[in-house]
Design a binder for these strands. Structure first.
Length: 619
RNA sequence: GGCUCCGUAGCUCAGCCGGAUAGAGCAGCUGACUUCUAAUCAGCAGGUCGCAGGUUCGAGUCCUGCCGGAGUCACCA
């Protein structure tokens, strides 16, 4: 539903309803939609509600309203009444005025600061492996929604929680200790990124563990277990399902990893030193990837520092009777009133869990920032977790419980299925970015528009184009939808893509060079030019920008803005094709069209920035 | 099994707090570069909006049931 008619049009129609029908327009919720297709007018007023109240045929009402409007206002050029639809056509001069309002509004589409603060958590990497395609989706969404909220008056602070402890990092630590020959990232040639190095040892652990498990399956002990629990199943199937138990109970390798975890928790100095060394390597590597994706964080939480924090709040809740202690000592909460189950908040040995930690972090943030809203950009597999977390926080009387929101997004899958890091079927984030930039370079070199530019400048442009292709491909689909990503076909550079939008900006820069002006320069307006066809279509698109931004923010959905920018670029490309600018028939036309270009460029740049993309001046 | 999400053109997706003949892109076919960048534009072709009911002047959109796919329902994170 598009409610993007300008305010003055609403007022005009409301006034007409009041005077012509003596009905209070505020009770009606009259809809006025802008139309981009031909043949339905510029705007459509839906008169069904009015017809219902007056108990008259919709078409008659529409005609009466149209008569009144066209004789009482100079903006309306003509109208058509079709059934309950009143199609209004605006006079070209009205469109010109509408456009000038847009062109002269600084920060068009943005809203003034409301003073409200939103905290956005995203990225949240693990320190045992490099970032992959799933993280890219997360980060791209996180960056975009942060900036979009900001444009709508929110103060925004970004945070991440680094998963730097637990059994996974211990696996990497153990494998590196045993097989890493003491070599760090810079001991290789060429040097390896730290996150890659540690990730390789994580994979190596899995391989060694698998080998160990294979061998063990031949052992007397394994055969005995199979006979006892195998239930006559196929041995292969049985041992596949037994893998976890093997890890817990039999594996010498796993035992060492778990010993390491225990030693870490006990604060063992040498284990802590090893942990710190590997973590530092990984974080440095990940930081590089973050920079390339424009991920910035105002506050970083390390799980190793906060994972115990929630306990106090759980115990407090226990005292207040919100939670209960089971016979075995575990603290649980009954969420059946919320349609959820019982959740354990503290283990019987008193240690905390993932939820416990998130409760603690929420309170910590509350103290530090007093946010009005908290957004968690996290994959949809954790939807249940966040439902429970939010319900528990509400129960505890958490201050901004109403402002909690899980921006959940679907998994990114490969054509063959889910990505599994242990199986090596992941698309590495850095590799993917290199690949799209390579494609951009290839494409660009093929057309040779950048010849003569210094190499460094060219590379920067390839980067900007490639990253836009990647980011746009992710942002244009609704977050909830799971994405199937085909690395072979990779990313399009033609059609509904980031580069398509960038190309509109590049074309405008080309016009500017030809005209000998800059985008910033004021060149004056024409008061006589009457815009037509493609020009009006472009103005209509421009006037939808505020709506797109607002909707994007309210729905926490960058895809709305992404698809808007495509529409805008499309209208521009069409206009550019049909209307000469530098060679315009008259001075008035040239000025007007250049203003149109300039404003379009401004909005494209602004919108692309809000989505986390840059625009080049050439491509 | 409970809950959540998804099902729209060959493929990838918009549209979903009800509106007119359901929109794009890719792939396919036809045209447009001595002109401001053809990463573009114009056109053709492609649809029982998963199925069945219901509400409504009007349903891809809302309600109910069913079918298919995914996720989740851990004292893992």
């Amino acid at each position: 539903m598009k409610e993007s008619a300008p305010a003055w049009l609403y007022e005009m129609v409301h006034r007409a309803v009041e005077q012509r029908f003596h009905t209070d327009p505020k009770k009606l919720k009259l809809r006025i939609a802008i139309n981009h297709e031909e043949g339905k007018g510029d705007f459509t007023v839906y008169v069904f509600p009015l017809a219902g109240i007056l108990r008259q045929p919709p078409e008659e009402i529409a005609r009466a309203l149209g008569d009144y409007l066209s004789s009482h206002s100079e903006e309306i050029e003509k109208y058509e009444a079709v059934k309950g639809f009143l199609n209004l056509y605006l006079h070209p001069a009205a469109w010109r005025a509408q456009f000038y309002t847009i062109a002269q509004t600084p920060q068009y589409g943005h809203r003034p600061e409301s003073g409200k603060l939103a905290l956005v958590e995203y990225a949240s990497p693990n320190t045992n492996k490099p970032l992959h395609l799933g993280h890219i989706r997360n980060i791209v969404l996180g960056v975009a929604i942060s900036r979009i909220l900001q444009s709508q008056g929110w103060r925004v602070r970004t945070t991440q929680v680094v998963n730097d402890r637990g059994i996974a990092i211990c696996k990497s630590m153990l494998a590196w200790q045993r097989w890493g020959q003491g070599k760090g990232p810079n001991d290789y040639r060429p040097p390896i990124k730290g996150d890659k190095l540690v990730g390789d040892f994580y994979v190596l652990f899995s391989q060694k563990f698998d080998e160990e498990y294979e061998q063990w399956q031949q052992s007397e002990e394994a055969q005995r277990i199979y006979r006892k629990y195998g239930d006559g199943k196929d041995p292969k199937a049985f041992f596949r399902s037994y893998k976890n138990t093997y890890f817990q109970q039999h594996s010498p390798l796993a035992r060492q990893a778990m010993d390491m975890l225990r030693a870490w928790e006990a604060g063992d100095l040498s284990v802590r030193a090893l942990w710190q060394k590997l973590n530092a390597w990984v974080l440095e590597g990940i930081e590089q990837t973050f920079r390339r994706l424009d991920a910035r964080f105002d506050k970083v939480y390390y799980e190793s520092e906060v994972y115990q924090l929630g306990k106090a709040y759980v115990l407090q809740g226990l005292k207040e009777g919100l939670f209960e202690r089971q016979d075995d000592g575990a603290v649980v909460v009954d969420l059946s009133a919320e349609g959820l189950d019982r959740r354990v908040l503290l283990r019987k040995d008193g240690t905390s869990l993932y939820v416990t930690q998130d409760i603690g972090i929420a309170y910590l943030r509350q103290e530090e920032f007093q946010p009005d809203a908290m957004l968690y950009v996290v994959a949809d597999e954790q939807e249940y977790h966040f439902q429970a977390l939010f319900a528990i926080l509400k129960l505890l009387g958490f201050p901004s419980a109403e402002g909690l929101y899980h921006l959940s997004y679907g998994m990114v899958e490969l054509p063959h299925g889910r990505m599994k890091s242990r199986e090596g079927t992941v698309v590495d984030a850095d590799d993917l970015m290199d690949e799209v930039v390579r494609l951009a370079r290839q494409e660009s070199e093929g057309r040779g528009e950048l010849e003569g530019l210094p190499e460094e400048e060219k590379e920067r442009i390839y980067e900007v184009i490639g990253m836009a292709a990647l980011k746009y491909a992710i942002l244009r689909v609704g977050a909830k939808k799971k994405m199937i990503f085909n690395p072979e076909e990779s990313i399009d550079l033609q059609g509904q893509t980031g580069p398509y939008i960038q190309n509109a900006y590049v074309r405008i820069c080309g016009v500017a060079r030809k005209l000998g002006v800059t985008l910033e320069e004021e060149v004056g307006y024409s008061d006589t030019y009457a815009p037509e066809g493609v020009e009006i279509a472009l103005i209509k698109q421009l006037s939808e920008y505020p709506r797109a931004l607002q909707q994007s923010a309210e729905e926490y959905n960058p895809a709305v803005l992404a698809s808007y920018l495509y529409q805008l670029a499309r209208s521009f490309h069409r206009f550019y094709h049909e209307q000469p600018i530098v060679q315009a028939e008259t001075e008035a036309a040239r000025r007007f069209r250049w203003q149109l270009c300039r404003t379009t460029a401004r909005i494209i740049k602004d919108g692309m920035y809000l989505l986390g993309m840059e625009v080049p001046e050439r491509m």
